[in-house]
Structures are given as C-alpha cells and as structure tokens.
Design a protein around this nucleic acid. Sequence first.
DNA 1: CTGTTAGCGCATTCAT
DNA 2: ATGAATGCGCTAACAG
Lengths: 334, 334
Amino acid sequence: MATIYDVSLRAGVSLATVSRVINKNNNVSDKTRQKVLEAMAELDYRPNTIAQSLASNVSNSVGVLVSQLDGPYYGPMMAEIEAALRAQNKHVIIAVGHSDAAVEQDSVEFLLSRGCDALILDVEAVSDDYLVKLSQRSVPIVLINRYIQAMEPCCIYLNNELGGYLATRHMVDLGHRSIAYISGPKNKHDAMERLVGHQRALAEGGLVFDPALYIEGDYKEEGGEAGMLALLQTGKSFSAVVCANDQMASGAIAVCLQRGLVIPRDLSVIGYDNVPFAKYISPKLTTVNNPIHEMGKMAALWVLRHVYADDQTLVNNVFEPELVVRGSAIRAVN
Amino acid sequence: MATIYDVSLRAGVSLATVSRVINKNNNVSDKTRQKVLEAMAELDYRPNTIAQSLASNVSNSVGVLVSQLDGPYYGPMMAEIEAALRAQNKHVIIAVGHSDAAVEQDSVEFLLSRGCDALILDVEAVSDDYLVKLSQRSVPIVLINRYIQAMEPCCIYLNNELGGYLATRHMVDLGHRSIAYISGPKNKHDAMERLVGHQRALAEGGLVFDPALYIEGDYKEEGGEAGMLALLQTGKSFSAVVCANDQMASGAIAVCLQRGLVIPRDLSVIGYDNVPFAKYISPKLTTVNNPIHEMGKMAALWVLRHVYADDQTLVNNVFEPELVVRGSAIRAVN
DNA sequence: CTGTTAGCGCATTCAT
DNA sequence: ATGAATGCGCTAACAG
C-alpha cells in the first residue's frame, strides 16, 4: 500500500505538501495540488487513518454504548447515528451495556481505550455520580435518554413524565375509572418517570392510585404477559391497562387473547414507545410516540458540532412524546 | 495520560521491557514484571491502542456491514457479533449498506480505510464478482447470508431453499391445495432461493405453481399488505398464503383482519425468519426459524480463529431452517 | 506557497 | 532476561 512518502516522491514535492492536499489545506497552489492528486491516483493511495489518528490525536471514531442491540428500540436509533456520522466520515464503534452497571462501566473504558473522540451513551445502571465524573475527563460525552442536571447541555432525553401522563390521560378521557398499570423495572429512570406521569393523570382525573392495580414489569413481552396474568388474578375489575412500553403491551394483549378477552371491547390497552411493530399487532396498538431515532440523530449532530466543529444545526435536547391513537383503546362503557 | 515511556522511567527499566509485559511476552523475570506492573498501576497507565495498531499493523477492529440496522432482523445478529468479539477485546465498527450496490461498495472502502483486520459482510446488492475480487485483497472477508462457490470457506449461510420448501410443505401437509405466495424482492438471492423451495414443495405435492397467486413483495410490512390486497383482488380463491418473511406476513395478516377475515379459520398464513415479534402478533405466527443470531456468532468466531488465531471452535457454515408451528396455519377444510 | 524537522506511542529487531 | 535503536505513516510547527 502506497504511503504519503511514495506520493511525495512521484509528485516531486515534500511530505508536508502531500499532507496539505490530503487535509484540504488551502496553502497549496493549484498546480502542485494537481500533481499530487495525480500521483495519488496513479499509486491508488489511501491515507492510513491509524497513522493520521496517532499523529493528529483525533481518531474520527465515536463510541456508542447502548443497553441492547436486539429488540425494536435501539435499531432505529443506531441507524440514525450511523448515518449522520458516516456522512461526515466518522465511524461508530458499538458496545453493549446490558443494563448492568459493571458491564456499562467496562464498556465505557473499552470505548475510551479505543481512542474514541466522543461517547454517546444510553446507559441505565450506572450512577449519576459516575457519569458526572466521567464527563469531567477529557472525552466529550452525550447522554441519551437520561437527564442529569450537572450535565444538562449534553443530555438528550424524552419528557417521560409527560408521556406517562398522556397515556393515562387518554384512558381517563375515554371515561375509564379503573385503570391498571404495568410499569417498567423500578430501577430504571424512565420507568419511574412514566409512572409519575401516570399518577398525575390519575389524580387530575379524580382517581386514586390503587397499588393492587400496579404491577412492576421488565419492559419485555414476558413481563407484559406476567403482569396481565397477575392483574387478572387479583379479581379486581378494571377496564383499561396502560403499559409502560409496547413490548409489554403486546405481551399483555397476547394473554388477553388467550383468555378470550377481546381488545378493546373488553379491555382497553395502551403502550409506549411506538416501536415499528406496534401497528402490526392486532388490534393496532394505541401508544405514545417516543422519537428515539430523532434523539439518536440529535446526539450524532451534537458530536459533529461540538467535537468536530462541523457546523450542524441542533434542534433541541428535550423531546416531547405524543399520543398515537390506534385501535387498542376505546371509550369505556358504563 | 501516561505512556509506556513514563512507565519505563518509574519502573527503572527500558521501553522494550514494558512493551514485553504489556504483550505478555514470557521473556521477563517475575521481579521486573512486578515492578512494571506496579508502575503501571501507580500511573494508571492504559495502552494507546492507536499507537499499538500503527506499530503492529493490527487494529483489533473488525468491520461489520449490514443492510439495515432498524427492523427486527439484524439486531440479534449484531448483538452476537459484538458479544463474541468484545469478549476477546476486539471492537466492531458498523456500517450500513441499505441494499444498494454503490453504498455497499462505498461502505466496504470506508471500513477498509479504517484499518479493519477483517470484514463481516451481509450484502445483497453487490455482485459475486466484486466480492470474489475483494476477497483476493489482503483483508479477510466473511460473508453472511450469501453463498459464493469461490469463497465457500468464508460463507455463512442458511439453506433458504429448504426453508421455502418447509414452509410450503407445511401447508401442503395441512391439506391446502391452493397456496398463494408473497415473495421477497426478486433481486435478492435469499428471496429467490426461498421461492425455489416453495415451488419444489408445490410440485412434490402435485400442485402447479399459479403465477396469479404469486406476488413479489419487498420484505417489509407494506409489501405484505400490498401483496395480500393484490391477492384478494384477483378474485381467485386460496386457502393459504406463504410469506417470504415475517414482516410481510404481519402486514398480510393486518389486511385480512381489516377485511374481516379470521386467521387461521378463513386463511392460513405462514411467515419466515421467526423474528422476535412473530409470537406476539395474533394469532401467533407459524413460521420458519432463521438462526440469524447463531450465524452472526459463527462469523465472529470465524474471524477470531482465522484472523486473530484465537483458538475458537467453529461449528459450521451452513445452517438449516426449521419449521416453527404456532397458530396462524391450520388444516384446510374441504 | 513549500520544505525540513520532530515527534505521536508503541512493537520489534538486534545486541548484550 | 534486558536494553538501544529504528520505524510504522502521518501531522504540525517552524523556516524560508
């Protein structure tokens, strides 16, 4: 593989000049630039990005840490991040944290050891404190799906409280008076925020939060199944159930179907996230839109702007959820 | 950040010795090794992987190119690849090809320019010829989901013909005599292979392939919807439809539901891939299992073994699909 | 506008 | 078992 040196020989210029044309430095006359370009073409020269990184102390790589890669949630986010970064010739190194604090920290170190210029993190298990300290190291950090006051400008997150509120509010508006809730794991921030919103909507509607109609789930289909089963077994009646994400909603619906319950006739169900398959389960799932892909894109733009000084227009840091009305929730009969 | 040089000073040894302990070279006495290790700890030394790469000509990074990141298909594959590689301290750089030949080639060059030690490719648009030539360059290539004779040992693929056969064979076994088929795009290899299997099962069952009951889809939900709509409009009767993937099956089922058709009573449906959400659509989708995550893992192990001489046990290159019977297909009434 | 000179942090001969 | 010397391919002052 040809090096910058070979090119300089062939073009009859110095190393520095070749470097200048590679880096689009303007201080090169058109004629020399041409000579160099030709030499490069003839030698099929490709810059060695590793050498560039070592010499310039910029790796052009950004690390992305997510909780999981399977599941419907992170794919769209990763896709946007890759696209935005790739368009500016940056590459993304992925790591998975599995929602485990030790693994998350290890992943961060791993990414750092790879010389990433910035880190985009979607972590849930690690403490605020750890992240604040991390942000004080030299590598820029962007947090997706998490708000930490001390890191405000680099947090990109959804107003989850509002989302939880919107979901339950929708049920209240439809006349439901007895509303069950299948939550995400209580150790996850967003799950707790959604719950708070749920309770606010309840209170606003003059309803009391009934612990017997509250189930802690796991954000997975299995948790939705187990949650619905548990709810059914309480013997308490309820006409609506709000699930803290679509996966649990789909699990809950599956259980209802098995039991001969017709959705939404016998029970109204609403999910959260608006994952791609939400509109392909039947009935089409009423849910709350979580613009996860936009948040991914925003994180990438943030990095381009702040780390690579690539003049990108940033829209915002905090995103608003929106109700998506489809067919799984209807007006209560009474 | 401390360098190997700082460590050598503190430990009172030479650069070479420090390098030896980093690389677990045995030619170091226990005492010196201890001194060096201590110095490293005290300085919180971390090797600069970029410098290591430049000096050793090994980047410890492997490029992974997939068609898309969203959708249910690639997530599980990526997850396995990341896990296997990460366990051996290799990192994965992702790129997306969007099933477009130009983008795929550009992505390959991009990955190559990043100094990847190997490439794992799941490409569909690029020609066999291109891949063969690529494999003759110096960077090892693994192909997922594609078989090219000249590259046999580095192809990891599914017997798609068998899968297509199994799906249709299941319908035939259930007594269906009029079986529609919604195919994947005809420019995709796997789609064509599945179709061949379908036709074999038809022939074996004494049925003739009816072009009027064949629709070319796009492997997406939309294609399944459009396909089912088109099928319904032909006016021809059919009691079963086999879809070339689960996403199209879910789209097809959604259309049926809208039209008041009950699945599987009025129509039996089978999908292909067994993506995670297949068992959460209702009725639970009968399908053909595609062990995509295992193929991902195998690709990663292949790289570890052949590129990094990490002694991994390889299982196999060609995977067999299996029928997964759930609730969307039943015996034909007649 | 162009060339010279130093490193970037590490691996790797080759000596000893 | 250890050290000295060289270079990986490139960027970035600094000169001119």
